[in-house]
Design a protein around this nucleic acid. Structure first.
Length: 504
RNA sequence: GGCGCUAUCGUCUAGUGGUCUUGGACGUCGCCCUCUCACGGCGAAGAUCCCGGGUUCGAAUCCCGGUGGCGCUACCA
């Protein structure tokens, strides 16, 4: 068997959405599992929908996620764009025309629209093509004359009706569709001398030696047309295998997840932030929202695929080893944002403290103007990472390590600042002041002993103490806080709090 | 409307004829841990396996029909 070659073939009409990312991922997993190649091809055959920057975005997004291409990218730009291969397609259009597999049609969009209004379920096919303006009805000479005159035209595929076309899908098994439901698809348009998706796709897949076409389910209805084109072009024996992936659905209501969902649902549907040059609209991406690429890949892999067994955590390499089309589900999956967040939380907790500290240090400086000392930051991170989902959550959890509270949360105060608290804290102050070894273990031992000796309530003391040092009722264990703050800072905060909280 | 794909807890799913009065994960709720919030541990609720027929000794699993969902039905991909 020949070497596996797959392609990811997006059209640069905007940012790549998360469903497209999953298609790219599955292509990549399958290719790498089989020691094959992954190829990028830009399908920009619709000149009217081209969006500047989209190609660069797609490459950047997939690079961020760790989906690598073997062909089709050089110096961060795509090397295969269909818009640059016009002559190639023209050759095959002529071949189809010469062999009676296609014909030239002159019907204007307006005329077609009128037909659709006039006849319900109008379809340009064997039943109607002879009543339209095309080379079949006009004759080849007249058609040539019109073309020479510069009349706009399209080339349509001549579909033979009532033939059962069968294809083997790696996910769905045998799929049979009757050719009568296919219309005479437009293969080529003179307006921009570009083929449509259907033709360009088949020609390129053949020329590039693609062995497996892995794409979304929305292509299933036109797959028989593609099979037909392989036959018409004489390439039936090297036709790739197909796998039509289930679609990603909107988490609310109905329909497939679409680019237009943007931020409507309260979570990103794009891998990276996207600024639309036409509308000026900004859409948020997973990267900027603080997601780790490994978490996104892991989550996405599981949306429509399930490993043997109950494990859920997989690195890219593990996914490559374990991926299988036989374990891809057939029905669409609603996007579960809560679980996606959970994955990120898990990945964040598994990162080492130093890595996280280095990641957030510049963010904190830029956003809050606080230049945290690295050693202290690493410790603060280690104490708080289990309550963060995103790196941007950290500051909320650690700010009090670096900035003393200037005010005290009123709710916490009402709940935790008891009548005895001023005196308790004064006593605690004296206890702490007398400690020389301010290590976590020793401080805890001494303070707990004092609480036990005095028969105080631990919660009452510690919660009031927390209010004094943190300014609210949150944070890690108190002795983690005191140790990291140090004796001087701890005493200073305590003294100030006693004064502030008692005055009122 | 036509054609196709599809159908197990709210969500993602396991399940390929008996071991399933359906297993796991997210979410939800409760308990434990505990100085708060988390983390972690334990547990609960949550699925007429879409409905109806059939095949079979036996069906969530196979077949047929219905229904729902989704997709396609463009000179878009």
């Amino acid at each position: 068997m020949s070497k596996v070659r797959v392609r990811f073939a997006p059209s640069p009409t905007g940012p790549l959405h998360i469903g497209g990312v999953r298609t790219a991922l599955y292509n990549y997993l399958f290719a790498k599992q089989n020691g094959g190649d992954m190829i990028l091809r830009i399908e920009d055959t619709d000149s009217t929908r081209f969006v500047p920057g989209a190609e660069k975005y797609i490459i950047e997004a997939l690079t961020w996620l760790g989906i690598k291409f073997d062909e089709g990218i050089k110096d961060g730009a795509a090397t295969v764009r269909q818009s640059e291969r016009k002559e190639i397609y023209r050759k095959y259009v002529d071949y189809l025309l010469d062999n009676g597999k296609a014909y030239i049609a002159f019907d204007t969009p307006q005329e077609l629209e009128a037909k659709r209004q006039e006849i319900k379920n109008f379809q340009y096919d064997a039943t109607t093509r002879l009543s339209m303006r095309n080379s079949l009805t006009l004759g080849n000479d007249e058609a040539k004359r019109l073309v020479a005159e510069g009349t706009p035209y399209v080339v349509r595929c001549l579909i033979t009706p009532n033939e059962d076309i069968t294809l083997e899908d790696m996910i769905r098994g045998t799929v049979t569709i009757n050719s009568s439901i296919l219309d005479d698809k437009v293969l080529y348009k003179s307006a921009d001398n570009l083929p449509t998706y259907h033709l360009a796709n088949i020609v390129d897949d053949h020329l590039m030696g693609i062995t497996h076409v892995i794409r979304g389910e929305e292509w299933l209805p036109s797959a028989p047309l593609h099979v037909l084109l392989y036959r018409y072009l004489g390439w039936a024996d090297t036709m790739p295998q197909f796998a039509h992936l289930p679609l990603l659905l909107k988490p609310d209501g109905n329909g497939k997840l679409s680019k237009r969902d943007g931020d409507r649902l309260g979570f990103p549907v794009f891998p990276l932030d996207w600024f639309d040059p036409k509308t000026g609209e900004k859409s948020s991406g997973y990267r900027e929202a603080g997601y780790f690429p490994e978490a996104v890949v892991n989550f996405l892999a599981l949306l429509g695929w399930h490993a043997e067994g109950d494990e859920e955590f997989f690195t890219m390499d593990e996914l490559i080893k374990r991926f299988s089309f036989s374990r891809v589900s057939k029905s669409g999956a609603k996007f579960d944002y809560e679980k996606c967040k959970w994955f990120n939380h898990q990945y964040l907790m598994n990162k080492d403290d130093k890595t996280l500290a280095e990641l957030i240090k510049p963010q904190i400086l830029a956003k809050y103007g606080v230049d945290c000392p690295m050693d202290k930051l690493v410790t603060a991170v280690s104490y708080t990472k289990n309550r963060c989902t995103f790196p941007s959550d950290f500051w909320e959890q650690i700010h009090f390590f670096f900035i003393a509270p200037t005010e005290y949360d009123e709710k916490t105060r009402q709940k935790r600042w008891k009548e005895s608290s001023p005196n308790d804290m004064k006593e605690l102050y004296a206890v702490l002041e007398a400690i020389d070894d301010f290590s976590l273990e020793n401080t805890e031992k001494v303070v707990m002993q004092w609480i036990a000796d005095k028969e105080y309530n631990t919660g009452t003391i510690m919660n009031a103490f927390r209010l004094c040092l943190v300014g609210e009722g949150k944070g890690p264990h108190m002795f983690e806080i005191t140790t990291l703050l140090g004796k001087a800072e701890t005493l200073q905060r305590l003294a100030r709090a006693i004064q502030e909280l008692t005055v009122h």
